[in-house]
Deep mutational scan, measured.
Amino acid sequence: MQRVNMIMAESPGLITICLLGYLLSAECTVFLDHENANKILNRPKRYNSGKLEEFVQGNLERECMEEKCSFEEAREVFENTERTTEFWKQYVDGDQCESNPCLNGGSCKDDINSYECWCPFGFEGKNCELDVTCNIKNGRCEQFCKNSADNKVVCSCTEGYRLAENQKSCEPAVPFPCGRVSVSQTSKLTRAETVFPDVDYVNSTEAETILDNITQSTQSFNDFTRVVGGEDAKPGQFPWQVVLNGKVDAFCGGSIVNEKWIVTAAHCVETGVKITVVAGEHNIEETEHTEQKRNVIRIIPHHNYNAAINKYNHDIALLELDEPLVLNSYVTPICIADKEYTNIFLKFGSGYVSGWGRVFHKGRSALVLQYLRVPLVDRATCLRSTKFTIYNNMFCAGFHEGGRDSCQGDSGGPHVTEVEGTSFLTGIISWGEECAMKGKYGIYTKVSRYVNWIKEKTKLT
């Protein structure tokens, strides 16, 4: 034993070699072989497995989906700052455009905790909710729209109204504003409101030439003092309507412009014939205590009207009353817009006519005020429907199939267009061939041609 100890002390290297040989010859039971080890760690190889990531292109799944990435790591994937920024906006807080917040056709661009709407022409605001041009839906104005110097929408209202708090709607500024039905039992019968379409306001006024200088022999019209197929109006439903009495009662109609003036057809009036105007009328054979009678003290036909040349060209006249009318729910003026808007309103496509005229061709006159909704007829169809001249200051309205029309005794009465609950004068009943005849239409004086003249002559002093 002493000898062994001496050998170990003198030859430590020998001992180490012996131990190493023993270990190498022993069977290893701690580690699995290569094949079995792979069965336990069965993990798919990654895209760049075996390579240094710093030297390969980034992978979106590896960089940002398996674990949260930084902007720089995302930049490695896209290799483009702009594309990385677009991805980053949604990656950080989701897609803010998912709810489609942009209105009126706006395009949404996502941002971090926010979004941006790219608005089409005519709109602005956070969600493109603000109209900035009158060309689109009248700028959301209830009545009139004008573009300011910086191309912003400025709404306005006709006389007797003021802008509401929203700067879009119009509200009454006087007790009985024009064009409004205020009798409670008839307010439910107000005709369907007309909503502004998209309009090209630059070209809204037709490029028409008034044929002022045409000389033409007097034409022989049949029954051209021209509501057939209409309905009984309720008291106060058309408070701007008046009836004219002269040699015979209810020979023509008219509309209240203001307390002192009536507008009617020029062919209705004769110099030297006494005319009485009755406002607030409903049943011409009954006294309903809503009527107001006034005498006409002055007749002003349009300066281009000449019955000797043509009885229905420039067929418009103004009547001055001896005493002002007292405005109330049964006696209310009709609204008159400017030339541009009167023309736009007419193009809405349908209007209402009213009167006490004959209820059928050569038949009896109506006792109760009649009204009828009539569609506008395109000019080409209008011209083809008659052998008589249709001037540019006239328009056609009615039904091709016949059966409904204005008729004798309705002449001078109103053709009105309702705009968001307020009625505007767009025409004056003038003439036609018979009444409600198939293929024939009622012919009306186009008020847009005469609004400046009306307003100039009827100013209240």
Rank of each mutant, 00 (worst) to 15 (best):
S114R: 12
W431N: 13
K311G: 05
C407N: 04
P197L: 10
A308K: 09
P239A: 04
G409S: 11
A397M: 02
V202H: 09
Y201M: 12
N166G: 05
Y441T: 06
V228G: 06
C141F: 01
F360A: 09
R294P: 01
P172D: 04
T218P: 15
K68E: 04
A250G: 14
C18F: 13
K311S: 06
C18W: 11
C178M: 01
K137N: 14
A207R: 06
S430C: 05
K260Y: 08
V353D: 01
H34T: 14
G409R: 11
P301I: 11
R83K: 08
S99Q: 12
E35N: 13
S184L: 14
D131H: 12
C157P: 00
R140A: 13
G413V: 08
E433L: 06
K109F: 08
A233N: 07
S411N: 13
T16H: 14
A149E: 13
D232V: 06
Q408K: 11
N304W: 09
A164T: 12
Q90L: 09
G355P: 05
D378V: 03
N452V: 06
K68S: 06
I210A: 14
R43E: 02
G246H: 07
G427V: 01
E27F: 04
D315F: 00
L52K: 05
F238V: 07
T85R: 15
H303F: 07
Y341A: 07
T218D: 07
A9Y: 14
Y305Q: 02
Y371D: 03
Y305F: 07
K68W: 03
V181A: 15
M8R: 13
L130V: 13
Q219F: 09
G398E: 06
P414M: 15
T264R: 00
R46D: 01
R364E: 15
N138E: 05
R449P: 15
K109L: 07
L41W: 04
C155D: 00
I336R: 01
G432H: 08
T29L: 14
A436H: 12
I443S: 03
L318C: 03
C335P: 02
G122E: 09
F424G: 00
T389H: 14
C178W: 00
S156P: 00
V30K: 13
Q96D: 14
G363Y: 07
V77G: 04
E66L: 04
A380W: 07
S423Y: 15
S25W: 12
L19V: 08
I297Y: 05
E116S: 15
Q90W: 08
L460K: 13
T276P: 01
V56G: 03
L460C: 08
E270P: 12
R358L: 06
Y441I: 14
C108H: 02
I344M: 15
F31T: 15
F399T: 11
N258P: 00
M8L: 12
S354Y: 08
I284E: 06
E433W: 05
A26V: 13
E67K: 01
I334S: 01
G442S: 11
H282V: 11
K126D: 14
C268A: 01
G349D: 14
T386F: 10
N306H: 09
L372Y: 13
L346T: 07
T276M: 08
E10R: 04
T381C: 06
E171I: 12
I336N: 01
V242A: 05
K457H: 15
R83N: 12
Y371R: 15
F87V: 03
F360P: 15
S99I: 10
G439Q: 08
V451Y: 06
R449E: 15
V419S: 05
L425P: 00
V242D: 00
S411C: 06
K446D: 09
N295W: 05
F87K: 02
D93P: 10
T194F: 13
C108Y: 03
L211S: 13
T158P: 05
T190Q: 13
E61M: 04
S148H: 09
V273R: 11
G94W: 08
Y115D: 04
D200T: 07
W356N: 03
S107V: 10
T271I: 11
H282P: 06
F221R: 11
M6A: 14
N127D: 08
N343D: 15
R379I: 14
C69G: 00
S169D: 10
N147H: 13
E420M: 14
S184H: 12
S430F: 04
K446E: 06
Q143N: 02
G349I: 02
F360I: 15
F31S: 11
C145A: 04
C128D: 03
G50D: 10
A173R: 08
T290K: 06
I112P: 09
N328G: 07
R364A: 15
F345D: 01
E86L: 12
E281R: 11
F144R: 00
F78C: 03
S411P: 10
N343Q: 07
E259H: 06
E129N: 07
S350K: 15
G432L: 04
F78H: 07
Y91W: 04
A207T: 14
R298I: 01
P324S: 06
D150V: 09
G351H: 05
M6E: 07
F224L: 14
E434L: 12
V257H: 00
T209N: 13
D110P: 14
K234I: 15
V199Q: 13
S182C: 04
K68C: 04
E231H: 13
R364W: 05
T85D: 11
M65Q: 08
E73I: 01
G105E: 07
D338H: 05
V153Y: 08
M65F: 11
D410Q: 15
E98D: 10
Y441P: 10
E270A: 11
V92C: 07
V242G: 00
Y450I: 01
K457I: 15
N166H: 03
T190C: 06
E142C: 03
S184D: 15
P175M: 10
F238P: 03
I275N: 03
V195M: 11
D249P: 09
R449H: 15
L23T: 05
K347H: 09
I454W: 00
Y441W: 04
A397P: 00
K457S: 09
L20N: 02
K311I: 07
G94D: 13
T342I: 03
G58P: 14
E323W: 06
K293D: 04
W118M: 14
L130Y: 13
W356H: 08
G50F: 05
R226W: 07
E420W: 10
E27R: 10
L189M: 08
G50H: 07
T158S: 09
L163Y: 01
A164H: 12
K387T: 10
C178D: 01
V353I: 15
Q57D: 01
H361R: 11
C407R: 05
F221K: 12
S156Q: 10
E98C: 08
C141T: 00
K362L: 06
Q185M: 10
S11W: 08
T225S: 08
G122C: 02
L163A: 04
A26I: 13
T209E: 11
A436K: 12
G403H: 15
T426F: 00
K126M: 08
K39Y: 05
C407A: 04
V377L: 08
I309P: 04
V202I: 14
N127Y: 11
T422Y: 04
L321W: 00
C117M: 01
F224M: 14
I336G: 00
F251G: 05
C435S: 04
